[in-house]
């Protein structure tokens, strides 16, 4: 599904690379945690996985296709196979919850009855049907997080990548959100979830991609990345 071979990334203004010699494979339907201390390169890897950045060295294969030399048009089409949940949600505040969820579908083509139904189903799944016509700026942080999750999965992406999805919500909401991700995983979606929360990783023992100083490193048993 997604394969990184000796991937490195160096920002133009910096001398040292933010990532170096990263090798791993995300098989279809897998669930991985992405973790590491601050400044380890998680954000850079997150941006590479979401195709926001392209590697400056090595190869990144998406469905066995090297994305390094693809055109902007091809990259846009590949991004439609990826669902992204940002730590800061990135909802459009002037749109309603339903319109935010419909965005990926409207970008992929005309809005049909089916796509309207998919959005309604997603909102029901995350428990926000009653807020569908409320503007995103008028809902709580937890509700915004669930809207962002609904938006990330409404177009049935092959891979879902989330950055600290439980970082800004209380414990009860965090449990609810993790439940949503594990449910998606059970249905065959590849999930990569970036987190600092070692408790969460211990509670759900999926494989861990652990970064330190821009390189993959084994996670220490008692490491607390916060």
């Amino acid at each position: 599904m997604l394969q990184l071979n000796d991937v490195g990334y160096a920002y133009p203004a910096q001398t040292a690379p933010a990532l170096a010699q990263v090798n791993f494979t995300l098989p279809q339907g897998s669930f991985h945690w992405l973790t590491g201390p601050s400044g380890a390169g998680k954000t850079t890897l997150f941006r590479l996985l979401t195709l926001d950045l392209l590697p400056t060295r090595g190869t990144l294969l998406f469905d066995n296709r090297n994305v390094t030399g693809i055109t902007r048009q091809q990259r846009a089409l590949l991004r439609r196979k990826i669902g992204v949940v940002y730590q800061d949600f990135r909802l459009l505040p002037h749109l309603t919850v339903r319109q935010n969820v419909l965005l990926p579908l409207s970008l992929a083509g005309a809005l049909t009855k089916e796509s309207q139904q998919s959005a309604a189903d997603m909102l029901a799944w995350v428990g926000l049907s009653n807020l569908a016509e409320t503007r995103a700026e008028n809902i709580s942080g937890g509700e915004q997080q669930r809207t962002a999750i609904a938006r990330a999965v409404v177009h049935k992406p092959q891979i879902l990548i989330a950055d600290e999805p439980t970082g800004n919500v209380d414990a009860a909401m965090a449990r609810k959100i993790i439940h949503l991700f594990t449910e998606l995983h059970r249905h065959g979606t590849t999930v990569v979830l970036a987190t600092h929360d070692t408790g969460l990783i211990k509670k759900h023992p999926f494989p861990v991609i652990h970064l330190n100083h821009g390189k993959l490193s084994p996670m220490q048993p008692e490491e607390d990345t916060e």
């Binding site: 048009q73 846009a76 089409l77 991004r79 992204v84 990135r90 459009l92 965005l103 990926p104 970008l107």
Partner: peptide, 9 residues
Amino acid sequence: LLVQLGATD
């Protein structure tokens, strides 16, 4: 955001 969601140029 739109570019990340798959909007083409």
